[in-house]
């Protein structure tokens, strides 16, 4: 074995390494979504928004959470850049396409559309950050009934007064659902965690997660819109 290719960059310098990074950052973002969904679900339990504001205040002020937010942005950025890079490399791997192809005969459309779904999510995410992250972290929010606690709920109430915004948020959850439907299982496969003992569990949890989390997220703007 006299491989002349001297390559010690095993993570970014190899196709499998780039997939490891994709899977790891993907699973990291999956855990973030779970926390995000749990905190935001507080809007369902308190129509005044006080409970949600209290949780949001903890997330916005706790030092550990603040440090983790930097990691979250780093992970998200790595996932996006790696994803775009893979998309480009993979496009280049087939310079001339088939004149006639039947890809639905061998794979699911969403598994082949991760780049497109991810791009839709990125566009949504920018809108979402402008709606909530920018006012809560940079431009500032009004104080709620509790002194020192921002009224993030009031911001939600204002944003989701517009039915078009509500529709965009709900549609974005379909992108998220299909992205997760492939991504969740794919991350385990990329990390080599495909095993007869755990495959059924990974599959079930993946499908459940991909339906439940986007469903709960989609419910939020609808419920708040209906409270007007």
């Amino acid at each position: 074995m006299t491989g002349s290719t001297k390559n010690t960059n095993y993570l970014l310098g190899s196709s499998i390494g780039r997939k490891f990074l994709m899977g790891l950052t993907g699973l990291f973002l999956v855990t973030f979504l779970l926390v995000h969904c749990f905190i935001n679900a507080m809007v369902f339990f308190d129509g005044t928004g006080a409970l949600f504001n209290e949780y949001a205040h903890f997330m916005g002020t706790n030092i550990i959470i603040r440090i983790m937010e930097i990691g979250l942005f780093a992970g998200l950025l790595a996932h996006i850049i790696d994803g775009l890079w893979l998309w480009k490399l993979n496009k280049d791997a087939r310079p001339e396409n088939y004149a006639y192809s039947q890809p639905n005969a061998n794979s699911k459309w969403y598994s082949r559309s991760m780049g497109l779904l991810g791009t839709l999510l990125l566009i949504f995410l920018i809108l979402h950050l402008v709606h909530f992250w920018v006012p809560s972290r940079i431009t500032g929010l009004a104080e709620s009934a509790v002194p020192g606690v921002h009224d993030l709920y009031a911001e939600m109430f204002t944003v989701f007064a517009n039915p078009i915004i509500v529709a965009i948020y709900v549609l974005a959850q379909f992108s998220l659902g299909f992205h997760l439907l492939h991504g969740f299982q794919s991350a385990f496969q990329s990390l080599g965690l495909n095993h007869t003992k755990y495959n059924a569990l990974i599959k079930t949890v993946g499908i459940g997660y991909s339906i439940l989390i986007p469903f709960i997220f989609a419910l939020m703007p609808i419920v708040i819109y209906l409270r007007h």
Binding site: T5, S14, S15, L86, L89, D92, A93, N106, S107, S111
Partner: peptide
């Protein structure tokens, strides 16, 4: 060695479509 050669040949990256 085999993965390095696979990459050097210009094959794409697996996205687990099946």
């Amino acid at each position: 060695a085999m993965v390095a050669q696979m990459d050097a040949e210009g094959f794409g990256n697996c996205t687990n479509t099946g």
